[in-house]
Design a protein around this nucleic acid. Sequence first.
DNA 1: TAGTTATTGTCGGCTACTTGACAAACGTTT
DNA 2: AAACGTTTGTCAAGTAGCCGACAATAACTA
Lengths: 227, 227
Amino acid sequence: MAGENHDLVEGSPLVLNEQEKELVRGIGTTVNYPKGQIIFAADEVADRVYLIEKGWVKIYRLSSDGREVTVGSMRNPGEMMGLAETVYHGKRTCFAGAISDVTLVLVSKKDFLEVLTHEHCFALKVAKLLAARMREAEAMVHELVCFQVPGRLALLLLKIGERCGIPESDGVIIELRLTHEEIAGMIGTTRQTVTSLLNTFKREKSIEFRGREIKILDPEKLGSWII
Amino acid sequence: MAGENHDLVEGSPLVLNEQEKELVRGIGTTVNYPKGQIIFAADEVADRVYLIEKGWVKIYRLSSDGREVTVGSMRNPGEMMGLAETVYHGKRTCFAGAISDVTLVLVSKKDFLEVLTHEHCFALKVAKLLAARMREAEAMVHELVCFQVPGRLALLLLKIGERCGIPESDGVIIELRLTHEEIAGMIGTTRQTVTSLLNTFKREKSIEFRGREIKILDPEKLGSWII
DNA sequence: TAGTTATTGTCGGCTACTTGACAAACGTTT
DNA sequence: AAACGTTTGTCAAGTAGCCGACAATAACTA
């Protein structure tokens, strides 16, 4: 599983290297969650952090009318999550939900902070992680303000393709079976708009549908929607 | 929504205490910038961090048509800035501009990282700072997606009022002389919309104008726009 | 297998906001 | 002073994308 895109994410600031993962595994417990499960919820006490071993997780808030708004991007295998609130505040400000079946390493706040104060390198890594996340969130703000919906959708597909797509002969397939509702929550639009835009992209042969999976055929053409 | 001002005060944990400030001053140089000055720009090498001693700074990106999009919120006295990119990446991803005359303490990346690895507490503080910033950016994403323009403007005024407003007998005055264009960049809308909404707020006596300064008269009524 | 629920497809009306354009007011420089 | 750039006020026209509603399909469940 992790072997697929290992080289792609090497050096990426968001994922831990093998050594760091081992460090976390040493003080944590491995747990499994099925797809759809809520891992943590807003207002809960933030007394643990997580390392994602397998699967994908979405970080979202709920709007007043109950829609899920994905405020952090999707979290990939090798990344940590639940850091920010655990490091500083008492309570979760958002929800974490399993997009696919996931395997997590769970570390208590106490153990985590202890490692943090004893292992200089790891503390710096955590700072870098948070820094990268912050820039990602800022980029999201920029995109929401500057791009309109078709551009945001195209960009999301390209990003997901790069992060967890599987290259095939004639394109990159996204095996994550996101619903249009979930996609809408990730780019700040409605379900209907996503449906209709995906069909527009399909009609121009930028993408194609494989059951409920999406395959990116023409990243160039897709990219031209951005703006 | 109107009553809960829970997230409004996210600014307080962002500032350094006296001891931490002294630490930074010890390894830095004090500099002044006049209002309007660009402190750092995108694509520059991120080889320093800043502590804001006096004044306010906006963190923004440029859209393709040249508009300033404030992606981080305003940075207040006592806060640090330029952390994320300096801690991890080589280059700035955004601009920092002086909203008012500012006094900054400037610390080289080298010195900063050295203190970071030697002072455990300070490293943790920096992690907390980054964590708080991240949550702030995520909150901004949430607001952009869920609230419409009047709500975002009302919320911005209330936030600024809390952060740097000066309480008077019948309200809180915001001495920062932001142009409508700047405000528009902070909430992702246009200059004209800001102008007309501010006048709507004035007409209903939620705010009043004192020259180019804004005074918040009725936070309750203003808050009721947040939906 | 059928019955039920979740997801997708489509469409017309609606509206919040943008865009562009221009005039008035304000602030600065000469 | 006058002359200039900047900021604000306002308005009419255009539109992107939301909303609600419903049908068609796919995915579970019993």
